[in-house]
Each structure stands twice: as structure tokens, then as C-alpha cells.
């Protein structure tokens, strides 16, 4: 791979890539900039890029008026809760598939993935109805359960691929050493798989955080997470650009940061291992 690259070519590549990167990133950048403007500056013509009166007032207004913290908290509970619950259910299942494979393991794995392909809208009403009957509509519990279920196949899948990389002999050694199944998973498998589990958690928090079908259709004011919070700006309130930008920035910032850490896992998790 020792390929001589001329400085000129590298400079050209760099300039082009940065230009394209900035164009793609621009909507986010613009949103972040606008969030620090006054409403007047936000819609000024010609647009103001960096030279405007920087202000934080939009953030405090958004927080005061729409109770951002409550939505944020809902998002945290729903994304975190569904991921945690998913991991708890998926670790034993992935252990089984990775270390005690049978002829049916592959079929079960494929079937689990296929449930992920079920279009949500196809089962919208039954879920809606069940939520009403069970009193789960507009509750965080309800969303935790639904998001856990829709992400469970990905969690099982990712953990399975990570577990497969752990030599079975080590688990057998633990068994010879007198570890029970619970101890084997708790003291040996889990610590060894921590990097894989962490990536799985990260990716699934992101997916749950951004999920915008069930979170919009199964919540109202009480349990709505940030997706619903932002959707409420589709009304004329959205015309207050600076405030919309502040709200948007707050909604995406946490996950943008997490996302940057999880680029590699993203490929693994979203292609079900079909691209390596």
C-alpha cells in the first residue's frame, strides 16, 4: 500500500473533501449558529454568518416555555431504558446462539432479523389499541417496551457477532473451574465482551433516541420524548427560527456526540454483518 502520492494531489483531495463535508454538515452548522442569534438576525437578509450579536436567550426561552427538560428526561428514560432492557434479554439469547449453536440457530437469527423488517404502519392500530387497553398510551413504560422490541433483533445480532469472537474454551475453562452458568456469563463472558456490549448500547441508544414513528404516534404531552418536542414546532411556532434552532440543537447535540464515537459499529449493526 506504499503508494506515492504527490503533495498536489493530496492538497486537491483535501480541499475537495473538506468542501463537500462542509456542504453536507452545513444545515447542522447553520442550525447551531442560528440558535445563538436574535429572531431578527435569524431571518435577516442577507444572512448573517458569524457577525451577529451572540445570545443565549433562545435556550432559556425554550426551556422556560416548553419544559425542554421534561422531554429530554423522557428521551433519556426511553432510549436508555429500552436499550438496557434489550441488553438484559439479548445477552442470554446471544450466549445461546454463539456458544451452543444448533441446526436452528441460523434460522432463529434470520427470523429475528425479519421481524425488524415488519413495517410499523402495518401494525399501528393493533399496537395503538393494545396500548389503550393496557393503559400504556402516552406512558414511558409503553415506549420503553415498544422500542426495546423493535431494536431487540439488532441487539441480539450485534451481541451474537461479538460473542462469536470469544473462544469457547475460555467459557469451558470457567465451567471446569466451577462457575455456574450465571457466574460464567457475569464474571467471564460479560467482562470480555465489554467493548462489544458498549458499542451495541451506543448504537441502540442512538436508534431509540431518533425513533420517530412510535414516539410520535403513541405519546402526547406526558411521555413525549424530544422527537415529539420538535414535532410540536411544525406549527407556526416553527417560524421563530432562533428558538426552533435552539430546541433542535438541544435535541440533537447529545446524540451527535455519541454518534461520532460509534461510526464503526454503525456499519456492523445496520448491515447485519453483510458488509465487512
Amino acid at each position: 500500500m506504499a503508494r506515492a502520492v504527490t503533495q498536489r494531489r493530496k492538497t486537491f483531495n483535501t480541499a475537495l473533501a473538506w468542501a463537500v463535508g462542509l456542504v453536507i454538515f452545513f444545515p447542522i452548522l447553520w442550525t447551531i449558529l442560528t440558535s445563538f442569534k436574535t429572531e431578527g438576525d435569524a431571518i435577516a437578509y442577507p444572512p448573517k454568518f458569524l457577525f451577529f450579536d451572540w445570545t443565549l436567550e433562545n435556550y432559556s426561552i425554550v426551556q422556560d416555555r416548553s419544559d425542554y427538560m421534561r422531554y429530554l428526561w423522557n428521551s433519556v428514560i426511553i432510549a436508555g431504558g429500552s436499550t438496557l432492557l434489550g441488553i438484559i434479554v439479548a445477552v442470554p439469547a446471544a450466549w445461546s446462539m454463539a456458544f451452543v449453536p444448533s441446526k436452528r440457530t441460523k434460522d432463529i437469527l434470520m427470523w429475528m432479523l425479519s421481524t425488524k423488517m415488519l413495517p410499523a404502519v402495518g401494525v399501528l392500530y393493533p399496537i395503538y389499541l393494545m396500548f389503550i387497553k393496557l393503559g400504556l398510551l402516552d406512558t414511558r413504560t409503553g415506549l420503553v417496551i415498544v422500542l426495546m422490541l423493535i431494536n431487540l433483533p439488532i441487539i441480539v445480532w450485534m451481541l451474537y457477532t461479538y460473542f462469536k469472537e470469544i473462544p469457547g474454551e475460555i467459557l469451558e475453562a470457567a465451567r471446569m473451574d466451577g462457575a455456574t452458568l450465571r457466574e460464567e456469563i457475569l464474571y467471564i463472558l460479560t467482562p470480555m465482551a465489554i467493548p462489544g456490549i458498549a458499542s451495541t448500547v451506543l448504537l441502540n441508544v442512538i436508534l431509540a433516541w431518533n425513533e420517530a414513528f412510535w414516539t410520535l404516534n403513541l405519546t402526547a404531552a406526558k411521555a413525549g420524548p424530544l422527537t415529539a418536542f420538535i414535532a410540536s414546532y411544525s406549527s407556526p411556532e416553527g417560524l421563530f427560527y432562533a428558538k426552533l434552532s435552539a430546541a433542535s440543537t438541544m435535541a440533537i447535540a447529545p446524540i451527535l456526540i455519541l454518534g461520532w464515537f460509534s461510526q464503526k459499529q454503525l456499519v456492523r449493526g445496520l448491515t447485519f454483518g453483510a458488509v465487512k
Binding site: 474454551e169 475460555i170 470457567a174 455456574t180
Partner: peptide, 20 residues
Amino acid sequence: LAPAQRRLAMVFQSYALYPH
């Protein structure tokens, strides 16, 4: 009996040490 109850100790080809 389960492996642990047989009072046997095993040394594996790959050593199977706990890396963590």
C-alpha cells in the same frame, strides 16, 4: 455430573486464560 462437580481440573490447548 456437571463439569464443576467432577473435581477435575483441565488445562486447555489454548490455555483459555481469562484475559481480563
